[in-house]
Amino acid sequence: MIVGLTGGIGSGKSTVASMFSELGVPVYIADTEAKKLMYNPAVRAKITEVFGEKAYTASGPDNAYIAGIVFKDKEKLAILNGIIHPEVGRHFKKWNEAQKGPYVIKEAAILFESGAYKDCDIIIMVMAPRETRIERVMRRDGVSREAVNNRIENQWDDDKKAELSDYIITNTDIEETRKQVRELHSRLIKIRASR
């Protein structure tokens, strides 16, 4: 059973994903794998063709340079996603085939935007107030409020995601979040057993 885990930037998806991981659930972090796949020569060639030679430095992709373009240009963001997401989809499929256990978590910020939600049996959304999210990302990434808002504006809004989600975890208090994860884990195991 594939359980999609999503939420806007700064909502705490990674925190929730690590809580599921601590419970022994295999977790696939799409963003981490996408970054690794950018080193793939075929992916690199496609990205360089669109974004130019500056998209890569001697040590690998220049994520700040690429982000500076795509978060201001929706067309370029769509092109980048069109290069990366099919690769992530193939990689996830292989990874999933090797997993054991009642279910796996696929954590992806743009689960809906990329269409990857269609491959999920159940979807969990992590939510937090916008101001909390902005402050978390500014602290975590050392970026400006404007940069965070640009990223938020390039994702679907929470209401739209919530409508398509099966479960919502509110992530404002760490212990309360942990409790929600444990309860949901028990429920997911029961759901899997009944199928």
Score class of each variant (00 low, 15 high):
Glu107Arg: 02
Pro86Phe: 08
Val43Glu: 10
Asn96Phe: 10
Glu107Ser: 05
Asn171Leu: 04
Glu183Gly: 12
Thr132Leu: 08
Ser186Lys: 12
Leu77Ile: 08
Gly8Glu: 09
Arg192Ser: 13
Arg151Pro: 02
Gly60Leu: 13
Lys54Gln: 15
Ile105Met: 04
Tyr65Cys: 06
Gly89Gln: 10
Glu75Asp: 13
Gly82Pro: 10
Ile29Tyr: 12
Lys94Gln: 13
Ser194Asn: 05
Lys100Pro: 00
His91Asp: 15
Ala147Val: 07
Tyr56Trp: 15
Asn149Cys: 12
Ile122Gln: 00
Thr57Trp: 07
Glu163Pro: 01
Ser21Ala: 10
Glu146Thr: 12
Val70Asp: 01
Arg187Asn: 10
Glu153Thr: 09
Tyr28Arg: 01
Phe71Ser: 08
Glu113Ala: 04
Ala78Gly: 12
Ile152Leu: 15
Gly82Thr: 13
Glu135Pro: 04
Leu5Glu: 07
Leu37Asp: 13
Ile84Val: 15
Ala55Met: 13
Ala30Lys: 07
Ile66Ala: 06
Gln155Thr: 13
Leu111Phe: 07
Pro102Lys: 01
Ile2Asp: 04
Ala78Leu: 07
Glu107Trp: 05
Asp31Ile: 07
Thr170Gln: 05
Pro86Trp: 03
Val25Phe: 04
Ser186Trp: 02
Leu80Ser: 08
Val50Tyr: 09
Gly7Ser: 04
Ile83Gly: 14
Lys160Trp: 06
Lys13Thr: 01
Gly82Arg: 05
Gln155Glu: 14
Gln155Asn: 11
Ser14Leu: 06
Ile105Glu: 04
Met38Gln: 15
Ser194Arg: 05
Phe112Gly: 02
Arg136Gly: 00
Asn171Ser: 08
Gly24Val: 09
Ile66Asp: 01
Tyr65Val: 03
Pro102Met: 02
Gly101His: 03
Val50Lys: 15
Asp158Pro: 00
Lys36Glu: 11
Ile169Glu: 09
Ile174Gly: 04
Ile134Thr: 10
Tyr65Glu: 07
Thr32Arg: 15
Arg139His: 00
Gly115Trp: 03
Arg178Ile: 00
Ile174Glu: 11
Thr32Gly: 02
Val3Ser: 02
Ala128Pro: 05
Val43His: 03
Ala162Thr: 13
Thr57Asp: 09
Gly10Val: 00
Val181Pro: 01
Met138Ser: 01
Ser11Tyr: 06
Thr132Tyr: 11
Val148Tyr: 02
Thr48Ser: 15
Val143Leu: 06
Ser59Glu: 15
Asn40Cys: 09
Ile174Val: 11
Glu87Met: 09
